[in-house]
Simulated scan of single mutants.
Amino acid sequence: MLDRLLLLWDVDHTLIDIRGVGSLVFGEAFQEATGRPMSAGMATAHGHTEPVLLEKTLDLNGIGDRDEDLFRRFADAQAASYRAHLVDLTQRGRVLPGVETALRTLRAHPGVVQTVLTGNTRASAKIKVGAFGLDRYLDLEIGAYGDDDAHRPTLVDIARQRAGRCHGAVFDTTATILIGDTPKDVEAAHSAGVRVIAIASGSSTSAELARAGADRVVTTLDGVDAPHLVTELLAGLSRNLTSGEQQ
């Protein structure tokens, strides 16, 4: 049984679904940063960090002239656009089923530390998570974000180090679990040597997540026995998390 546990939650399609607002905001930020509309559309995200997604979208739109300040301009414009579309965010978006109950129960346990590991920039992630009130359960200061590093597996160690400094503890690989919804999340966790729970709440199916090698795949957090979930995580995922678990 572990004494401490660091949980690294992905944001989009794991905690929340913002139902098209992200693409709208990305397009506005793209035009603001480049001076050109995103005429060929946006590259497919599939778990990419924001710097990688921007690079792929620049390629897709035939923009080869990229100064070193481009991503900063994009990130600033993206955060400003999210703030401008805050009403759209809350009216069109939603917290995914079972998420708030799980976060609230886990937050109450003295041995559990929760934060985010996301390809979003820090500023945009804080706006999105805060818009739905989930920041009350998550320590966003110790999270890892796309503007920390473009390589998602590196973000795991960044979050572990931040959490360790903040809490005066060592969160080794056995005491860290990443929770996400894409094969990229699974790949990042395994590359960093930590366990991963995959939730089939995004575009990836349970079968795809299982093939990617997730330690545990669940269809949803809805209906989870939250107190039992705490025990399961601290015990090392030794028993079922939900009745919707995929073997």
Rank of each mutant, 00 (worst) to 15 (best):
D225N: 15
L86A: 12
T105Q: 10
E187K: 12
D3I: 10
S81C: 14
F74V: 02
D65L: 12
T57K: 05
R4I: 07
E100D: 10
D135V: 03
T101G: 15
N61E: 06
L6M: 09
Y137M: 01
K126R: 15
A79V: 11
R83K: 15
P183H: 07
V186M: 12
E50I: 05
Q31D: 09
G133V: 06
E100Y: 06
G143C: 03
G20F: 09
L140A: 07
A84Q: 15
A189S: 12
H228M: 14
E232R: 11
Q31I: 05
L234F: 11
E50H: 05
D215H: 15
S203G: 09
D185N: 10
D17P: 06
I16G: 01
L58M: 09
Q91H: 14
A102P: 00
A163P: 05
R94K: 15
T118E: 02
G223Y: 11
V113G: 03
F26R: 01
T154E: 13
G130I: 03
L117H: 06
A169R: 13
K128A: 05
K128N: 06
V25F: 08
R152S: 01
G62R: 09
G41P: 07
S203N: 11
T173V: 14
G146F: 00
T242S: 13
N240K: 15
H228A: 15
I158R: 07
G193W: 08
H167T: 14
Q31S: 13
T174W: 09
A159V: 05
A43K: 04
R211Y: 10
D135H: 11
V217S: 05
V52G: 01
R73E: 06
L6R: 02
D181F: 04
P37G: 06
E50S: 04
M38R: 04
A200Y: 02
E68D: 14
A169E: 11
A210E: 14
L15Y: 04
